[in-house]
Nucleic acid binder design. Structure first.
Lengths: 229, 229
DNA sequence: CGGTAAATTGACCTGGGTCAATAAATGTGG
DNA sequence: CCACATTTATTGACCCAGGTCAATTTACCG
């Protein structure tokens, strides 16, 4: 990445705002304002349905851009909250237009990241539509571990999930009770071990098979990106 | 839109390729090549799971860009097929880099459309995770009608669905048998009428309520787009 | 050291799936 | 235009994965 590109991106992170666990950064249906980059911590986005049930849409990790729907919608289609104490860097929509205008290659990279997120969403769509409860829970465990490992190479088979079983249920379309049963079953099958909120993969291959997991990290090709300006 | 912008977009549509109903345009796991713009007809994208079940990810209508994941992935994560006789305009990835480089405002518009598609996906995720079979079928009927109406203002309450009940099931995460029962129930409730593959909305309000439907068309704000170059 | 949120587990229920048989609709070759 | 073949739609009977409800137990927190 060129110096100019890095400077433009750095400008998105001049301000920083801390968030306590549970703090709401963006609330569904409220006017959208700034966008954010997640600097530290873990967050999630969700929607609430009329009957009060919740669907968690996505877990957010450092480096992710938050509240991007604010670019397009006057009111936010989703709520964004902190799952752990976190820090975000707010920036204005106009910063985005500046980047797109001045750095076409960054614009292309943002489009590429959007595509990767879209594919992650369609993978979850297929999981909710067509896989068993056990498979969905297994898929969630793999997804969280993979995201954590991408940020911290020290994480391999053991990690702190940091989610309640109710949250796992709201992400996978299950009830907390059934999530509990599925975790127990996965544990009894010898695929994972659990203790004090930490999960250890004992048989990642079998877990991936149960989850119908497809690795999307390999197979990425960004050779089409334009030259840096 | 400026002349230059229109010329650039028109260059994406110089070639045209016809597709018969059922023709596969892009096959899952096969190398990605060109991108496409759907010119005429209706198509869909889907993934197949290990057990042979299918999840339909999206229905595609004229104006939609197809195979965009080819920008990022060496092999396609999804299959794209024609639901009716259709026509697409293939173009090379390099055309995309050209547009992004020369027309920042078009790049921004593409990013905006991506966001709208992402929100449509999260709406479906919430439907699969947290709504009843009847609600999901109702939501699908509304979605298809709305997309058709956006292209043909003449369509109001009556339209040709153009999907088998098995396809509706693969989109909503249900079996064809249960889709049949839900359609019958929605009909018996007086919300729709059916005859010869055509559906008529008799009580759109109740249908929207059953579907937990949220209108995303209003509420769009593109004031942040950069100036045309 | 309470007090509240989260995890577990059992008993029982139901929305949606499975299987199977027909009926309708849509094509196709002649 | 007709007879036959293949999808697609329907419906009934029955089953089960996952939900509901309720009671404990355990972990976390000020």
């Amino acid at each position: 990445m060129t110096d100019a590109e890095q400077r433009s991106l750095a400008r998105l992170e001049v301000r920083e705002r801390g968030l306590r666990r549970g703090a709401v950064l963006v609330r569904e249906n409220e006017p959208t304002g700034e966008l954010f980059i997640l600097k530290r911590g873990m967050m999630m986005s969700y929607v609430l349905l009329d009957d009060g049930s919740r669907q968690i849409l996505r877990f957010l990790f450092p480096g992710d851009m938050l509240g991007v729907s604010g670019l397009v919608y006057r009111r936010s289609p989703e709520t964004v909250v902190a799952l752990t104490d976190s820090a975000v860097c707010p920036f204005d929509r106009s910063e985005m237009t500046g980047i797109v205008t001045m750095h076409p290659r960054l614009a292309a990279i943002i489009m590429a990241v959007n595509q990767m997120e879209r594919v992650a969403l369609t993978d979850r769509l297929a999981a909710l539509g067509r896989t068993s409860a056990k498979g969905r829970v297994a898929a969630l465990l793999l997804e969280i571990r993979n995201r954590m490992r991408a940020l911290d190479k020290g994480i391999v088979d053991t990690f702190t999930l940091g989610l309640t079983q109710e949250e796992i249920g709201d992400a996978t379309g299950l009830t907390a009770v059934h999530v509990n049963r599925m975790l127990r079953q996965i544990e009894d099958d010898g695929l994972i071990a659990r203790e004090a909120g930490r999960v250890t993969f004992l048989n990642e291959g079998a877990l991936a098979q149960a989850a119908n997991y497809t690795d999307r990290f390999s197979g990425i090709d960004l050779s089409w990106l334009p030259e840096a300006r």
